[in-house]
Amino acid sequence: MTAGDRFAGQSIETARRILTNLLGTQRIDSAELDARLLTGAVLGLDLTGLISAAKRILTSNEAAQLARFAQRRIDGEPVARILGAKEFWGLPLQLSADTLVPRPDTETIVEATLELLDTNGRRDRPLIIADLGTGSGAILLALLSELPNATGIATDINLDALRTARSNAAQLGLIERAHFIVCDYASALTGDFDLIVSNPPYIPSADIAGLDIEVRKHDPLRALDGGKDGLDAYRVIAPEAARLLVPGGLLVVEVGHDQSDDVTRLVAISGLALPAPPKADLEGIRRAVSGQKKP
């Protein structure tokens, strides 16, 4: 029996239960949530809609589409890739093949940045932000949503990634305060910035093959590979931040699970002060390293 046969003629409630079991047999920890999201996407229903329409029988087209989604998930494709969208900081973001799937770990960068800004004044003050290697635009757009008088420049070496970020800015009503430049990190930037943020590639090249299939096969390699020791991007970003930040301006970057000490040293070598210890994510990993330009 194929997956399509399993879903054919089933009610929404039964189809969702079948999909949960299918994913569970593949040892997918989030099987129940994934089944709800995929079923809801096929039917255009949220959780309330799935519950209220639980007894409705799937059409043949719906059963076939759910079977296709099920197979993609079984093959290791993340739900966010299948749906082409992911929520980050409460914001719905569209994805593309050229962007990372935003992860909860990266929200630590937003949290750390806001905490540092709060110690230096009001959130409604004018700020100029640069997000280096923006991908989907997640970090910049989250910050713009919290900082009403900030403007930002997002850079990425990949034009298609920038198109995705720009589309997200437009959909979120932030396009008037966001600008997009194709370049490698800050190579095309001049001027004075109050804040520079980045989630650069930081996986050591030799570790790529051992990553989870959801990352290894479905995230863009350019956004993962940080060079031999995973630190190539920071060797570029830290001195660029020292060049571009105004006195007192802040740098906040995401780092890998064992990189906070090394990145902190690179930040210090660039001439930036260390305004706060690295901030840990929900798993206790020191995820956000910050620097501050001296007066």
Score class of each variant (00 low, 15 high):
A97M: 00
Q71D: 12
V182L: 04
A31K: 15
D184C: 06
I139F: 01
D5T: 13
S290Q: 13
L37N: 07
A178W: 00
D212I: 11
L132I: 06
D105I: 00
S60G: 08
D98T: 06
R103F: 08
L250E: 11
R68N: 05
L50D: 03
V255E: 00
I12P: 00
L147P: 11
Q259C: 02
R122Y: 03
V246M: 12
G226L: 06
P102R: 05
D156F: 09
A288W: 06
L132R: 03
T25D: 13
L66E: 04
L172K: 06
I129H: 05
Q292W: 00
F69H: 15
L43R: 12
L224P: 08
S260T: 10
L22M: 13
S136Y: 04
E62D: 13
R36C: 04
I175M: 08
A112K: 06
Q65C: 10
D160S: 14
L23V: 03
L91Y: 08
L50T: 12
L250P: 11
S145F: 07
N61R: 15
S260R: 05
E13M: 07
D219C: 07
P239T: 11
R123P: 02
L127P: 14
I109D: 04
T134E: 01
G137P: 10
A3H: 13
K279E: 05
V263A: 13
A70H: 04
G248K: 12
A67I: 11
F193N: 03
P204C: 05
D219L: 06
L116S: 10
E240M: 13
P201C: 09
A67G: 06
F180M: 04
K86Y: 00
Y234E: 10
G44T: 08
F180R: 05
T106D: 11
R16C: 06
R122I: 07
G84P: 03
I285S: 04
N61E: 15
Q171C: 02
G44S: 11
S270A: 15
G9E: 05
E32L: 09
I196Y: 08
R73F: 12
R73W: 09
A112T: 03
G84R: 09
Q26S: 12
V197F: 03
F88H: 00
F193A: 09
P104M: 10
H218M: 01
H218V: 08
R73D: 09
L282H: 09
E62M: 10
L100S: 12
A138R: 08
I28G: 00
K86G: 00
R68C: 06
E62H: 06
